[in-house]
């Protein structure tokens, strides 16, 4: 994706306003309606009569995007499935403690993030290998993974992401693949925006170096 020029950026903004108007709402009202929708779901989640149905909607809405986030963190489908289930089970169990201070998606991402951290640290302690050996074992896994269809460059990218520390990995994935803003990542990870920018910058350098050495 080539960065847009200023003129192109303004054209893009005009197009977005037109697109929002096509839905019969103004730009501001469009995003307000999305916010209202989330507030409505949160209200229904706190009512025991409608909680189950509301949670079902939440699972449908967020399971795919959380899945891909976790998958890029841990690579393996089965591990991702387990972590995703744990994330939603914990969200269900902790519904009473969710007061709507943060967005629902942010709250779910935070749970998923903590689950991934726990999983990766447990995996690391279980392995009796050095850092270099970790890289080799991850590379072998991707090659034999039936649910991985990427080319060599994509495999290298995924392997290099696997060499990053867990937090840095999460930051890189959210910024590079999902194009989240630093402010949003900060809410999820609990780190300042400045630290996130530095972390992302270092992650990019490490990945570029890893790929250059092997391509």
């Amino acid at each position: 994706m080539v960065p847009l020029s200023r003129k192109q950026g303004k054209k893009c903004q005009r197009f977005r306003r037109k697109a929002a108007a096509l839905f019969g709402k103004s730009t501001g009202a469009f995003f307000d309606s999305m916010k209202d929708k989330e507030e409505d779901i949160v209200a229904r989640l706190h009512d025991s009569a409608t909680a189950y149905a509301a949670f079902s909607e939440v699972v449908r809405e967020y399971s795919e995007q959380l899945y891909w986030q976790i998958r890029r963190m841990v690579s393996d489908h089965e591990d991702t499935n387990d972590l995703l289930q744990n994330t939603f089970m914990k969200a269900w169990a902790g519904l009473d403690s969710f007061r709507g201070d943060a967005r629902l998606s942010t709250w779910l991402y935070r749970i998923a993030f903590n689950e991934c951290l726990t999983f990766l640290s447990r995996k690391k302690s279980e392995r009796l290998l050095s850092i270099d050996d970790e890289e080799t074992s991850d590379a072998g896994k991707l090659e034999s993974d039936p649910y991985f269809n990427g080319d060599y460059a994509q495999r290298l990218l995924q392997e290099s992401i696997g060499t990053l520390p867990a937090r840095q990995r999460m930051v890189f994935i959210m910024k590079y693949f999902e194009e989240k803003k630093y402010e949003e990542i900060s809410e999820i990870v609990g780190t300042s925006v400045g630290a996130l920018k530095a972390s992302y910058h270092h992650a990019v350098r490490k990945i570029e170096k890893y790929i250059e050495e092997r391509l």
Partner: peptide, 15 residues
């Protein structure tokens, strides 16, 4: 550089 060489495509798939 990473974008140029690897892109942002999703190499994973699900059952």
């Amino acid at each position: 550089e990473i974008l140029k060489r690897c892109g942002k495509g999703n190499p994973f798939r699900t059952p």
